[in-house]
Structure formats: structure tokens, C-alpha cells
Amino acid sequence: MNKEKKVYEMLDKVYDPELDQPLTELGFIDHIVIKEAQVEVVFRLPTYWCSPNFAYIMAEDIRKYVSEIEWVKEVKVNLLDHCASDEINQGTAEGKRFSESFSGLADGDLDELRRTFQIKAFYGRQEKFIKHLLSDGMSKKDITALSLEELHELDLSTEGQVLRDKYLEKKEALNHSSLVAITTPEEEALTEEELADYLLGAKRTRLSMEFNGIYCRGLLEARYNLPSINKVLQ
């Protein structure tokens, strides 16, 4: 496979944790430079002020995933036009932890923050998937009783399969071990009666991520004069 294509394929795995969307889709990757075994990934964000912690997570993940390619010996991450560009670029280059890069300004690392947003992404993906099952005619009772094995065997449309895979990815990220397919992020089972209220809460999280996604994309377009997806979809 072409080297550039391979790097982009790995970058597809890097998500903006607040938006639960890949950087490649969001337009956050400005460009990449490949010099033999060295890869430089240049990325940009919608504003100068985007939270440094989320930017750091993205930078760390870029480095982590691109480093997995077997011919890659060195990865340089270069965040442009950001209030903490220097700290983030140097920090990730040296493989520092967040608390070292921002010493005095942080009281720990990013694991908790990562987990908080894994949970939000879990809610968002799960809500979409359950809504899909409901519109497919599955009852609330059957949904809450579904085992993991049955979930894998469900006969789903292409869209349904994508939603299932995305949901399962988040279950895995949260290290779920329960054999029940549809649970809370803490792996508690849900009853048929509880499901409606639970879904309302999950929908709130999903919507919030979607609005933020639209805002971020719009600001990125305005900042870098990119073609507007807002106007196209209007």
C-alpha cells in the first residue's frame, strides 16, 4: 500500500474525544509529510482556544496510531495556530505525559477525561443503535433482554451493522465484560420500563455532541476559508 494512504488509514482511528468523530472527517488534518521512515502530521483546530487537554489527547493518539505502522521510525506531530501549540508539540515529541508538559497547571493526567468522553461517546452510539432497532420493529422488552451473542447474530441492514459495530467499539473501550448487550456504561442491565427515560438522557448527550460537531466544523471552515458544508446541506 502507498505510504501516504497507510498513514491516513491510521489517522482515521484518531477521534476528537468531544465530538466522537475522526480527525480526517472533521478536516483537522492539514497535511502530512513523509520522509522515508519519518512522518510529520500537521493538524489544526477550529479555534486558537480549543481546550489544550483535548488537543493533547488528539496529538497523543496521532503519534500512537501512526507509530504502529511497521516502516515508521519517527512521528512528529505539529499542531498549528493554537494557544498551547509549543507545549503540545514538544510534549508529544518527547512522549511526555500531559502533567509534565503543563506542570503547575494540571493536577493529573488525562485518563479520567478520556474516560468521561468515552462514556459520552458510548451513550451517543448506543442511543443511535437502539433507536435503529426500535424503528426496525424490535420491542423494548427484546432489546433489554438481548444477549451479546444474540446481538452479533441479529440480521441487520448495512446501516444497522455499522451502528452495531460502532457501539461495540465503545463497549470494548470501556472494557465491558457483561454478557448483556444493552447496559448502562457501568454495565447495569436495564428493564423495559427504564429504557424510555434512559434513552432520553442518552439522546441529550448524543445531540450535544452533534451540535458541537456542527459548530466546530463551521468555525474551522470560517477560520481556514474551507468550503461550507452548512450551506450545502441547507
Binding site: 482556544w49 481546550s51 487537554n53 497547571l105
Partner: peptide
Amino acid sequence: KGPTVTPLNRDAF
């Protein structure tokens, strides 16, 4: 609520 509140490792929003 704005983006850069210390400690920076928490969700500022």
C-alpha cells in the same frame, strides 16, 4: 464557560 480553566487536565466546560 470558556475553554482554559486550571487544572487543565479536567473538562473546563
